[in-house]
Design a protein around this nucleic acid. Structure first.
Lengths: 123, 123
DNA sequence: AAACTATGGTATCTTTTGGATACCAACGCT
DNA sequence: AGCGTTGGTATCCAAAAGATACCATAGTTT
């Protein structure tokens, strides 16, 4: 069924590394917003409610570094910067969407489990 | 109003929430180790190199709260506590493994992108 | 002309989280 | 008596997240 533990451990660390990028609070939302085409910084900032400029910058830098988005600067005043998913970024959406589908389908189960746990803890 | 974007945003937040659990540094490793059957605390601690007791406890509590693992206490001396994946936990492995497969297949591309980015930055 | 707005950031400070270390209780073993 | 085992918790410090203020520059409003 599953390979030996040692191999799996290595695999898990690789997964862990990718999830370290994909799994933070904002990355999935940013990638989701960029799915429909390029967007500029301020569009993302306004579209994603609750994210700060700093965190959006940080998130986009990370995605750019890992090759998931491109950053295009228009030297105008005021400045304009477009972000767009790369091929790698669009490919990433497939497994991320699969996880997203699972999350949507099972969110209620998770929430029920949380409610049960929190209720028991408070006794 | 932006109806399409609004729903997508809700979805992304659901995904984000699940990834907030799954996507931290240790959760995937713990779930991976538990794939082959129940394990006790100290086995996990020794098996996963580098995790501290505190973080293992925290991670397991989170997984338990969200209904991904069960915690069974044997009232012996010294104490014994077994952790085991629930059905929900085992189901979660499917999309997580899909992401893991993607991660393994594309890790080199990500690393190349990182190397390129870091090289350009240092100029 | 002064003030205000838009843009894509960075610098600075505070709060939250991660992680290392030490300690505990209760028993078995030597 | 003293040490090791087990599954934690308490405490402290470092790291990361987050809020806020500021910047340069042009166009628009007053």
């Amino acid at each position: 069924m599953k390979p030996a533990l040692h191999f799996e451990s290595e695999d898990c660390r690789a997964v862990s590394d990718i999830l370290g990028r994909v799994g933070d609070k904002w990355t999935v939302l940013v990638v989701g917003y960029l799915s429909d085409g390029p967007m500029r910084f301020s569009e993302l900032l306004r579209g994603i409610g609750g994210i700060s400029q700093k965190m959006l910058t940080t998130t986009l830098r990370g995605l750019e570094r890992d090759g998931f988005v491109t950053r295009k600067v228009f030297p105008s005043i005021p400045p304009r910067v477009d972000y767009e998913l790369t091929d790698l970024g669009r490919e990433l959406r497939v497994p991320v969407n699969a996880l997203g589908d699972w999350a949507r389908k099972n969110m209620s189960r998770v929430n029920e489990a949380r409610a049960r746990f929190d209720k028991v803890q408070s006794d």
